[in-house]
C-alpha cells in the first residue's frame, strides 16, 4: 500500500446471496462487509463451495446480490441495469478465468483486440500487438486458441485483461487448469502486469502460496468472512 491511492475502489455492505434449491433456500454468502482500496491486491481464499466465485461475481457486477450492495468505482451496482453494469465492467474491470474463456473463433490477436474494439478504440490493433508482445506471444498472433497450450491461452487472456488498462482485475483461480511450473510463470506475469498498470487485484484461489503474494487475504467459510485462516478440512 506504499505508492498507490488510498481511496476505496470496491465496497461491499451487508452482501448476501441466497438461491432456491430443491431442499429449500440456501445462503451461499451472507453478511459480507468489505472494502478494497485502489491499487491493493487482495486474495479471496476458501475451499470449494465456500462462496469465493459467487463473491467475485457479485463484486464484479456479473450477478446481483439478494441483500446488500456493492459500490464499484463509485457506481452503486444494484442501482444499474444489466447494460449499466456492463458499461461499468467495460470501463473499469478486467477478468482472468480458470478456463481462460478465449473466443475460439478469434485469433490470439483478435481476442486481445476485442475489448478495445468494443470500446471503439481506433488503436485496437497496435495496442493488442504490443500486449501480446508483452506476454511473449508476438509469434502467436494469428493462432487460434485451439492451437495454443493452456499456459499460452492464459497469457493471451492476461493480455486481454490488461488491454483496457482496467482499474480492477478480477482473477478466478487463474492457475487452476495449469501445471505448477506454468502456473508460476503466469502468476509472475500477472503480478508484474499488475504492478506496471497499478491495477487493483482481486484474486480468488484456494492456493495459500499464491494468496501469500497478495497484500491482503480474505478467508471465506460457508459464505462468511472469517477472521483466522481456516484449517483445511
Amino acid at each position: 500500500m506504499s505508492d498507490t491511492r488510498l481511496n476505496t475502489i470496491i465496497a461491499a455492505r451487508g452482501l448476501g446471496k441466497r438461491v432456491t434449491t430443491a431442499a429449500g433456500p440456501l445462503d451461499i454468502l451472507s453478511d459480507i462487509d468489505l472494502e478494497i482500496n485502489a491499487g491493493e491486491s487482495v486474495a479471496v481464499l476458501g475451499v470449494s463451495g465456500s462462496g469465493k466465485s459467487t463473491l467475485l461475481g457479485l463484486l464484479a457486477g456479473l450477478d446481483l446480490p439478494s441483500q446488500g450492495e456493492v459500490l464499484l468505482a463509485d457506481e452503486a451496482l444494484h442501482l444499474l441495469d444489466e447494460d449499466g453494469r456492463a458499461r461499468v465492467r467495460g470501463q473499469h474491470v478486467g477478468f482472468v478465468f480458470q478456463s481462460f474463456q478465449l473466443l475460439p473463433s478469434l485469433t490470439a490477436l483478435e481476442n486481445v483486440m476485442l475489448p478495445l474494439e468494443l470500446a471503439g478504440r481506433q488503436d485496437a490493433r497496435s495496442q493488442a500487438v504490443e500486449l501480446l508482445a508483452r506476454v511473449d506471444l508476438a509469434a502467436r498472433e494469428t493462432h487460434y486458441p485451439k492451437q495454443l497450450s493452456g499456459g499460452e491461452q492464459q497469457r493471451v487472456a492476461l493480455a486481454r485483461a490488461f488491454a483496457m488498462q482496467p482499474a480492477i482485475l478480477f482473477a478466478d483461480e487463474p492457475t487452476g487448469n495449469l501445471d505448477s511450473a506454468t502456473g508460476k510463470r503466469i502468476i509472475d506475469l500477472l503480478f508484474d502486469l499488475n504492478r506496471e498498470h497499478r491495477t487493483t487485484l482481486v484474486l480468488v484461489t484456494h492456493d495459500e502460496q499464491l494468496a501469500a503474494r497478495c497484500q491482503r487475504r480474505i478467508h471465506l467459510d460457508g459464505g462468511h468472512i472469517v477472521a483466522a485462516p481456516v484449517e483445511p478440512r
Binding site: L62, E82, D83, R89, G90, F95, Q101, L118
Partner: peptide
C-alpha cells in the same frame, strides 16, 4: 452462449 457471456463480461451491452 460463451461468446455472448464473455462479450457481456467485457462490457458489451445487450444491444451490442
Amino acid at each position: 452462449f460463451d461468446m455472448s457471456a464473455m462479450l457481456r463480461c467485457l462490457g458489451a451491452s445487450q444491444r451490442e
